[in-house]
Design a protein around this nucleic acid. Structure first.
Lengths: 340, 340
DNA sequence: CTGTTAGCGCTTTCAC
DNA sequence: GTGAAAGCGCTAACAG
């Protein structure tokens, strides 16, 4: 790449000025009163030659590369959270920065190589992202410079951005309450491990708390909560079936994520039940599938894109601490209605 | 980042040798017989100080950055093709390279900025990726150095990697033929625009040709092919319904992608028909949803990960021309069975 | 076998 | 107002 790129010296020569002058002008330095004519000449020459600065050379002096590292455990390539990258990319562009990405795949060796590779390239900071919202411990090498955690927290109080799952939980429950559901609301997707181990998930516990809090606010409580070993469609299917077998059926369920809800839909269909006439469903994430389901699934969206943006904003603003909670909002579709 | 990094000079000082020697040793240069002891001293010093080379500085001399640009129209953040990045990332890591990513979002201004930004950082080459398999025209700026097209072709014969959709089409049809389907196979997802405009899609036409060729091989032809304005679930739904209304029903359908198949499943369920007992379904892409459907959807997978790998391999091998076709293989699930 | 010297392209004192 | 010169950290000729 960059075969015989035009250099600053070329521009200076063409403009009949020194490199210093050209540099000053091109960087729009204040306070240094260069003649209007010099400005003209410099711009003209740069334009004619198609000059573009060599970032590597520049960064050697300035120690800034306008490059941010985005390292994730696995998120980068997952359908689920491409949104985080997209948001980061957008924000980076707005700040004239660029993203270097790497994935550790949860492998310590890969992680070390990845981080070294980024640091060797003198990135201005790193965004360390996790696929599942959770607590993690940041590799020591990263403490050398600015870091912000994305979709994760750490014990050492690094700045981080997280979805506001607790309020999200309230939002989900409220969507049901406001339609008149109250004492026959069930949850699908309780999970001991996710709820108790913050290194596995921060979302499960927060969502559940939010749901319960919203119910408590109106003096109601959960009819039942079905456990699921994982949050996959098949588990949602099984959980819904078991819910339907009981004497008192829920009028509405909140699924801990959209994949569970997908499974729940299948169980409902098998039972000849109609959503939302017989049972309302609300869920979390706003996976693309939520829009494809019939009827469309109302779900509290994970604000991936915004989260990604925030992460780079924090990094570039030099925020060095604190948690940023990004609100989750309800995507209303047709899966929620008043109880029969 | 990189606050007070150890430099080559520091290592040289510590080892009591010159920078040259240290550089030579650390880069494992052949042909230069430095004493074993010098090697020892250098390695020891580098190790003790935790020396890491400054890539920016090095690249200023060598004109190599070990960095590849991955620019895409929109693919980077799409659930659909994260696999391409993942593959590229893996291959890059194996070659000790790193990926700089950018998204143009189909906007010419963004594209220009993105490409300039990458070029300014002296990337060694660029991978230009498209979300939909199609023909496109490469921005002139890219012709300055190595480029490979990913999931796209261009008129100017740049090296490119594409999925082998035509053979994929044969594979899909063969999956049905081998179960005994023959004269009552229908297609869902014909699309005039996609089939005729290579700038929109290369896949539609190729898949269809493959399907027809496989049928022709056994002297059969398509029962019917339903058109869809887009390849979305709702269109699959509608198409399937119209297929079912006709006097002679297909025993099997091949959907042009998994989302159409998803819609088709819904229509089948509404009609009280069972997959695969009443009708077999096969499709393309291997979207995550294919595994979640009940029964699991047999689909010809888009080899995104392999494609990503190939792209960086080609780039790094200095391949400057030619089309690389990556085979698509059938993911067998439960949606295909012998006709009733 | 090893060290000196000269840049790569840029920014930045500091003189003029 | 503008330019000369030094130097960021590294590699590559070229001596010794």
């Amino acid at each position: 790449m960059a075969h015989d790129r035009v250099t600053l010296a070329d521009v200076a020569h063409r403009a009949g000025l020194s490199k210093t002058t050209v540099s000053l002008v091109l960087n729009g330095r204040e306070g240094t009163r260069l003649s209007a004519e010099a400005h003209q000449r410099v711009f003209a020459a740069a334009e004619e030659l198609g000059y573009r600065p060599n970032v590597a050379a520049r960064s050697l002096r300035t120690r800034k590369t306008a490059t941010i590292a985005f390292v994730s455990d696995i998120v980068a390539t997952t359908r689920f959270a491409g949104g985080m990258i997209r948001g980061a990319l957008d924000a980076a562009r707005e700040h004239d920065h660029v993203l270097l990405i790497a994935e550790t795949q949860g492998d310590a060796t890969f992680e070390k190589h990845a981080i070294d590779a980024m640091l060797d390239r003198q990135v201005d900071g790193v965004i360390y992202a996790a696929m599942a919202t959770r607590r993690l411990t940041v590799p020591a090498a990263l403490h050398a410079g600015p870091v912000v955690l994305l979709n994760a927290t750490s014990a050492d109080g690094l700045p981080c951005v997280l979805p506001d799952d607790e309020r999200g939980g309230r939002t989900a429950a409220t969507a049901l309450l406001s339609q008149g559901h109250r004492d026959r609301i069930a949850v699908i997707g309780r999970n001991q491990l996710k709820e108790t181990d913050p290194e596995v998930s921060l979302a499960a516990d927060a969502r559940l708390n939010g749901i319960r809090a919203a119910l408590a606010d109106v003096g109601a409580k959960l009819l039942r909560a079905a456990s699921c070993p994982e949050w996959l469609p098949e588990h949602g299917y099984t959980a819904m079936r078991s819910l339907l077998r009981r004497a008192v059926r829920p009028t509405a369920v909140v699924c801990m994520n959209d994949r569970l809800a997908f499974g729940a839909y299948q169980a409902l269909a098998d039972a000849g039940l109609i959503v939302p006439d017989d049972i309302s469903v609300v869920s979390f994430d706003d996976d693309p599938i939520a829009a494809w389901l019939r009827p469309g699934l109302s779900t509290v969206a994970l604000p991936h894109e915004t989260m990604g943006r925030r992460a780079v904003d924090l990094l570039l603003d030099g925020q060095t601490t604190g948690t940023t909670l990004v609100p989750m909002s309800l995507r209303r579709r047709r899966s929620v209605a008043a109880p029969a």
